[in-house]
Design a protein around this nucleic acid. Structure first.
Lengths: 264, 264
DNA sequence: TTCAAAGTTCCGAATAATGGAACTGCGGTT
DNA sequence: AACCGCAGTTCCATTATTCGGAACTTTGAA
């Protein structure tokens, strides 16, 4: 194993729940000898990948990584366009929106637009959601072929919530719904009481795909608003798909005018 | 030079203007042999530090770095507190605010709160501003001893704008003003037509320090608003300083009631 | 098809990484 | 004060990686 892999491995030890790590923490998490770990962490600090908190002992990701994280977002015009669309919908309906991408079996929030409403859904930026149990995740899965989806889940489906799809066949059926209607809906799956509507677009050039999502406390959303959100998402996804030449965009399957509200 | 330093060096080649890089780009930027560079970039990709765009050729920072960048912010309760304070001021005055930290001779935006006003200042998150030519930078410099400031600038001062301090003595005089009044003001320095007010606090425990800043188009700010912003910043900085036990906070020097508006 | 530029692979030489053991520094305890 | 235990660091010979020049392959344009 190269020291680079080891370094990346160390970086992966950090997370929302592990913001700072000591040498022994990393030893416990990775099982590497402590001499190597001690040297590695110091080398990473000297290189600027990590910082020591205060004088010493505890390490955390360096500001260099923060800076690069920013350019990760900026690097994608697809993300920027999606963000603009979501932003417009948020302005109209007042609910919170965000843009996210698939990473492995999770979906990760990239950008966030706070709504005007008093009851707001917290920022999902940098947070992971299970791919199968979120509207946003299913819109991204719906862009894959069924056999690709099956290949992603060789074992049992993760079951983070009772309302999430239980079996692979269950999931595939819902993905089919997403492909027909152009959007996906979550009904308090990832967070109880929180609903979400989402639609995905991709850039065939680079292969990247993002999901546009609006979330809201389920108690506060009206039927008319739901309709408005769906229309906004579909129109937005469609316009981006047209610009980028994304033929796989599910929203394109949907005629621009009439649409039957149908679970997806 | 260890491969870790080389890798960090490569990461530093990315920036707002250089979102994607090829092997030859990196060769040109770092002067390293292209065989080594080719291998290095691939190793970094295999480790997950970089991603290749589309199928190949161009590299950009990986999602791992984005994720870590998020926890950089979340790791600091000081940043969170500062963000809350700034957020409150933004709610009251409608202008844009942000929280930033010093990194070398620059100041870097960490969080951003968009104002309600039509004329908004764009997001500075992940952006660098020169330390000497920004309100935010000078509040952070004012926390250092004069000799430490002199040590930071062995050569001539960077002169990004005609309104920025020209000489070291000039700068030190202004820092003294910051220490007395508790805040710093920028008068179209970093961006023409854009004013800013800032105040800094630190956490003596960890040694980290952040600057709270409100920016606005100079044409739209009234005298009363300016007063309101300054009061908000000073009160906020003072309350955080009290919680954290930061005796060096310049805002503490200022009595809670009367204050003479004075450039800083 | 040809060509130049960009990228990759190969190689021995040079360098850096490894992990066990010994060492240091720091609290807390007897 | 001396002792203990824990976290972290340093040392060392061994081992494995990395290095950069040159040769090779791929790419994209003419």
């Amino acid at each position: 194993m190269s020291i680079l892999d080891a370094a990346a491995d160390v970086l992966r030890c950090f997370g929302p729940d592990r913001l700072e790590l000591t040498v022994t923490d990393v030893v416990a998490l990775r099982g590497a000898p402590k001499s190597s770990t001690s040297r590695l962490l110091r080398a990473m600090r000297d290189a600027g990948l990590l910082e020591t908190v205060g004088d010493s002992k505890r390490y955390r990701p360096g500001i260099l990584l923060f800076e690069l994280g920013q350019s990760y977002r900026a690097g994608s015009t697809l993300v920027a366009r999606a963000h603009d669309v979501v932003s417009g919908i948020v302005d109209r309906v007042g609910h919170t929106g965000y843009v996210s991408v698939r990473d492995g079996l999770d979906v990760m929030g990239l950008t966030y637009v706070a709504g005007r409403n008093v009851l707001r859904v917290g920022t999902p930026v940098g947070r992971r959601l299970p791919l199968t149990a979120s509207a946003t995740g299913r819109t991204l899965l719906a862009r894959l072929e069924d056999h690709e989806v099956r290949a992603l889940f060789p074992g049992a489906l993760p079951q983070p919530s009772p309302r999430a799809p239980r079996t692979l066949d269950d999931l595939i059926a819902r993905l089919d719904g997403v492909r027909r209607t152009g959007f996906a809906e979550s009904d308090g799956e990832a967070n109880p009481g929180v609903g979400a509507l989402a639609s995905a677009v991709g850039d065939p050039e680079t292969g990247e795909a993002v999901s546009l999502c609006i979330t809201y406390p389920q108690s506060t959303v009206t039927v008319a608003e739901r309709r408005q959100i769906i229309d906004g998402l579909l129109d937005g996804a469609r316009s981006i798909a047209t610009i980028m030449g994304d033929v796989r965009c599910a929203a394109l399957q949907t005629a621009s005018r009439p649409r039957t509200p149908q679970d997806a």
